[in-house]
Write a protein that binds this DNA or RNA. Sequence first.
RNA 1: GUGGGUGUAGCUCAGCUGGUAGAGCGCUGCGUUGUGGUCGCAGAUGCCGCGGGUUCGAGUCCCGUCACUCACCCCA
Length: 447
Amino acid sequence: MSDKPTPLSGFPELLPEHRVVERAVIASLSRTFELHGFANIETRAVEPLERLSKGGEIDKEIYVLRRLQAEDSAGDSGLALHFDLTVPFARYVLEHAGKLEFPFRRFQIQPAWRGERPQEGRYRQFTQADIDIVGRDTLGFHHDVEVVRVMAEALAELPLPGLSIQVNNRKLIQGFYRGLGIPDVTAAIRQIDKLDKQEPGAVVALLVSEAGASEEQAWRCVEMARLRTSDTVYLREYVEGLGVEDELLATGLDELVAVVDGCAGVAGERVRVEANLRIARGLDYYTGTVLEIFLDGYERLKSIGGGGRYDALASDGRTTYPGVGVSFGVSRTVVPLLADGALAPGRKVPSLVLVALADEESRPASDAVARALRSRGIATEVAASPQKFGKQIRYAERRDIPYVWFPATDGSDGTDGGTDHQVKDIRSGDQSAADPHSWTPAEETEK
RNA sequence: GUGGGUGUAGCUCAGCUGGUAGAGCGCUGCGUUGUGGUCGCAGAUGCCGCGGGUUCGAGUCCCGUCACUCACCCCA
């Protein structure tokens, strides 16, 4: 008992019937991404620490690697586990720039690690699915629209509740703040991001104290952030009606309208793309489009995905590689939904057929049946031991194997003239004669 | 990192003001001797998280510790 391992908080491990769902999600996402020409890559789990830590809040969540033999705590290797897929990707682009074709579009589905306190939907190891498009020196704005569309399409294919992709634009925010005359625009963005958990009055106070805004300016920031709509005509009216003139603001508004309008085609009942002027994103490398994804009914999970435009995340000094991308939290979404039954578990075992075993002497006959079925792509296993058939049926039932196959007997054991092959659908109880070289399972049991 | 909650059978949990451990589900067997699911009967299973203290006696009270969990912070 004391030998029984206890769970490690924040490192979720799925049972087979749950893992099969996660794998289906990953396969579905991959299919959609590839349909749009995104190539897959996998980056190493580890990056040099100084590349990861750029002085953000996230620094203290980084797991550092250290050899056990290292003399003391100062002896870390300078290597650390990546905490997202964007930073490693930027490094990858710089490192392999000479061998890549630009604009480079890739998707990446991998674990990432963060040393924070776990909670529902927040883990220390989690799988993330990212798509990005990166250009050399320049990257057309239409790619902003494209990545959002692709992710919207990919998410629409998944068996999830409804969700919304809420889009904003850093240029719009910055231009508005600049036009308003706020001294510290960056600080103001960080504060306005807190609107969803703080009272407007509290955020106003922060804007005044942290960003040097006047009280009146602060209230206008809060007012601007209030709008959330998928109606871009109204969006334009509203923003222009705020009475702030700024070139950057106008550009940002145009871009935001373009993204929302550009996604109108894929947006449907379950996946909505809308403008939300409160979305800012904490990370400071975003320069234009920013977005976050929220699951209907699971707002408590906060965003299940996010992303945006970054014009200068990767640069080797001579060349800059602007990019735009979106990431989706696979673990963050799948694990809580499985836990509360919103996602139905899959089967525990891939086998569709269990071939019964009469006795050890007839194992070759059972194996032959299994081989015939497998040769036609039907996942099949042979019973582990020649127990009573009732037991063997229960074995199949417990593993969610829908069919049990009773091999033919040739009558050589003297019982009678022998029997035909029989296959039983244990969900319905129906049993009938069948030929292992031609029998196929009913439609609905195929994956 | 800070604060709250919880650790009892494989799982979910009960166990009163301290008196030597329980239920449901699951599991095993039998009824049913090579066709499951229902039903009935029988059975197995616990260092009561760990360490210390109080006590004649601790699952129960006290202290510590570890783990899990929730919230804050931050984010996928």
